[in-house]
Each structure stands twice: as C-alpha cells, then as structure tokens.
Amino acid sequence: MLFKLYNHLLSVFQITGFKDPVLAARLITIGIYPGKRIKIIRKALFGGAYYIDINGSHYAIREKEMELITKVEIEEGIDEQ
C-alpha cells in the first residue's frame, strides 16, 4: 500500500465535527476542533499515521482517527492513483 502514501498529500480540510464523542473529547483537548484547518503534510509507511499541520503546530494522527473527523476539503492536494 505504498501508493497510499500520496493520498490527499498537502490537501487542506476544515473540521466540521466528529463522529465519535470520546475521540472528540481527546482531540479537542489538544487543539483539534471544529473550525480549525488541517493540512496533510505526510504519511507514515503501510497505512500508518498522518503528519498534519494545524496553525503551524504539528500532530500525528491515525488513519482511523482521521476518518472519525467530519471535514470538508478546501484545497486539493496531490493524489496518486
């Protein structure tokens, strides 16, 4: 799944909400909450975590956790298909 490395690379999303309240509580606490913009910088190997940028701060976040964030894409990134 090396090709997934480039999925959404450099895309920017705006967070609109969360699908899971427990995860939401955790993410909000560290500064990931609705209204914030997520820029995807890179991704670890084999379906690993995302390296993201929010307001100049960096976070690591799992693929699964990313799926549980509802968001709209506001800038398209590089997709490799």
């Binding site: 955790r26 993410l27 976070y59």
Partner: peptide
C-alpha cells in the same frame, strides 16, 4: 484508556 495516537509533535 482509549487507544488513541493523536499526539502533538513538539518543535
């Protein structure tokens, strides 16, 4: 504890 990665990467 929920198994969460969500982690800040400090400068």
């Amino acid at each position: 504890e929920l198994s969460v990665l969500a982690l800040q990467l400090p400068d």
